[in-house]
Amino acid sequence: MAEMLLRDAMSKALREALDEDDRSFLMGEDIGAYGGAYAVTRGFLEKYGEERVRDTPISESVFVGAGIGSAMIGMRPIVEVMTINFTLVAMDQIINHAAKLSYMSNGQLQVPLIIRTVTGGGGQLAATHSQSFENWYASVPGLRVVVPATPYDALGMFRSCRKDNNPIIFAEHALLYRVKGEVPEEYYEVPLGKARIAKPGTDVTLVAYSGMVRVAEEAAAKLEEDDISSEVIDLRCLSPLDLDTVIESVKKTNRVAIVEETWKTGGFSGTIASDIQEAAFDELDGPVIRINGPDVPAPYARNIEQLMIPSSDWVVKSVKYNFGL
């Protein structure tokens, strides 16, 4: 099986879309001549031309809206918003329009739009460029939110997204582009809404998604040294959310910690924690722990920036302390 960077898995996914589906086209800022801010679409313009690899003005609202509009009449656009921070400029289009059209038209309209965007902090890009808003979008009915943590899932879930007829926020973590993982040559898909047990274990469940899956895996390895066996669950999607896999795991381990990069207040970990205690209250052998970034804007300076992103040591300490392990 070939090893592949997540960036290359995404490139492959996008090439497949353009190769296999005439209705698909890419649109976004600097995806063509520049080759993509994260180099995912390098070489695409030359191969597919300007019509299908469309560089846009810096007008997020209108090019996201243009994606929606073209999807309304049967195209399958793939829109790239350079970072999730910039999706805020297009939030009206995403939430008031993309997420509503199927419902408000009573199913007459479908919006098969994939909005690819880059999420996460840790790159010393300071407060406006280091945020994660997947949780916000996950709270909106009508949207799907896909948050891959591995090259395998990035490709496999993108393939599933292409078959889905809903607006999708496909959030790729900036620090994962250089992560390598195995990606088989043969065709496969990863269904949306099916969490992955990244590592089985018996003593505590660590729930994570996107960039935090690696943190949880590292923490699991450290806990293992103290004979604490962690089960790491990669949610893969926030919407649809696979709560069943989480609950099954909690029933086994009786302890759960949710690791999430974004702010604790309003974090998606709160939703998951609440769902867990509703569904499995009598299975809990301790409080449901939320390990989130603190409620502060991301600073520039590296030392303090690192203090706001959950780390594996942080997870280990929190698990040991809160569960008395």
């Binding site: 609202s61 209108v62 090019f63 996201v64 809206g65 243009a66 994606g67 929606i68 509009g69 073209s70 999807a71 309304m72 009449i73 049967g74 195209m75 656009p77 289009q93 329009h97």
Partner: peptide, 9 residues
């Protein structure tokens, strides 16, 4: 923006 998208389609 939606009109733009329909026209683009």
């Amino acid at each position: 923006p939606l009109a733009i998208g329909i026209a683009l389609g």
